[in-house]
């Protein structure tokens, strides 16, 4: 649980706080001096360590596989892999670069997060802090249920329900904010732009971020809320001084899970965004088409007929793999930096 929500029971202060003044280093799993010699202990320790090692080994192997498979294509590439937006994998030598894929992937995910995270946090705060208990309990159950539904269901709903009515929204944004490169007007119809797919992705990741944030907010110790209330804090001030700071690592972790889903989402992106013409000029606009890493790979999965060509797609997958790593590391750094203040 602690790795998902960023908090655990051990993070909340207990009555015996002065026993471990030394801080977190006094609480490593094996420092409790408990016996580990019995058979049951050995079996469980073995299973747990085995599972842990297996995960690390799997991630390493997947990384190694991607690198090995990508090398032939990368060495036979006539374009700059990172900066080019070409994608000609039927020629020899190949000409391919990920600039466009990277931009569309990052842009859709970031816009989706910018929409989904504030919404989710507000819903979670409503359910834990404002809603009366007759509403909060079924609400929590409902959100957990929604989080378990495959996100493509929400994607479909968004495409068919919001899609037809999205053109006016896009028209307003392009006419008001059109002077920004991101909101530049293009010929792409509203139902197939990067911006629209971001909205759909936001809908898709909303339940999971809400469910996890709600879980964390619900764990805010009453003592912290009482402390703020007794100082004369209003409801919002209690949330600001006690609930949000306590839940911050959890919100970050929840957002990362949501971001992971958004980065990797394939089918919804394939359904919505129209691919650009091969030689289209570079555009920063969110109101044009494009492909993400995931949709590019999926769109072309039928054509993986020779290893070098496949390698080009695997190289793209490798970048997605690394991107996910970087994002998660950044999130961990943010959480760790304030760790002393969350004990």
């Amino acid at each position: 649980m602690s790795s998902i929500t960023g908090v655990s029971a051990a993070d909340t202060p207990g009555p015996d706080d002065d026993l471990h003044e030394g801080g977190p280093e006094g609480r490593t799993p094996s420092s409790d001096g408990a016996s580990t010699g019995r058979l049951g202990d050995k079996i469980f320790a073995g299973l747990a360590s085995g599972a842990g090692i297996l995960v690390v080994a799997l991630v390493t192997l997947v990384g190694a596989f991607l690198v090995i498979q990508a090398i032939p294509a990368l060495t036979n590439n006539d374009s700059n892999f990172l900066l080019s937006q070409d994608w000609n994998v039927d020629t020899n030598p190949l000409q391919f670069g990920i600039a466009r894929l990277l931009w569309v992937t990052v842009a859709t995910s970031l816009v989706a997060m910018a929409i989904a995270v504030p919404f989710s946090v507000c819903i979670a705060l409503f359910l834990t802090q404002y809603a009366p208990s007759w509403l909060a309990k079924p609400g929590a159950a409902l959100i957990d249920l929604l989080a378990a539904v495959p996100s493509i269901v929400y994607g479909l709903w968004g495409v068919f329900t919001i899609g037809p009515h999205f053109q006016p929204v896009q028209n307003v944004l392009t006419s008001v904010l059109g002077w920004l490169p991101f909101f530049e007007k293009t010929q792409t119809s509203a139902g197939s732009t990067i911006f629209f797919v971001s909205v759909i992705l936001a809908i898709m990741i909303l339940p999971i971020i809400t469910a996890l944030s709600r879980e964390v907010f619900a764990q805010t110790p009453q003592a912290h809320k009482d402390a703020a209330t007794a100082l004369g804090a209003t409801k919002w001030e209690v949330i600001r001084t006690a609930v949000l700071p306590f839940g911050k690592p959890g919100i970050i972790s929840a957002s990362m899970l949501g971001l992971g889903r958004a980065l990797g989402e394939t089918v919804a992106v394939m359904m919505i965004v129209s691919a650009l013409a091969p030689n289209a000029p570079w555009s920063w606009s969110l109101f044009t088409g494009g492909e993400t890493f995931a949709s590019k790979i999926a769109n072309n999965a039928g054509e993986f007929d020779n290893p070098t060509k496949t390698g080009a797609y695997i190289a793209a997958g490798l970048v997605l793999f690394i991107l996910t790593f970087i994002v998660n590391s950044l999130a961990r750094i943010v959480i760790e930096r304030r760790k002393a203040f969350s004990e």
Partner: peptide, 22 residues
């Protein structure tokens, strides 16, 4: 009630400093 609590302070059974604050 918020104004009341600003003039009548309270200390609780268990020490409850805000953990995220210095």
């Amino acid at each position: 009630p918020v104004a009341v609590r600003r003039t009548v302070g309270m200390v609780f059974q268990r020490p409850n400093p805000f953990p995220t604050m210095s």
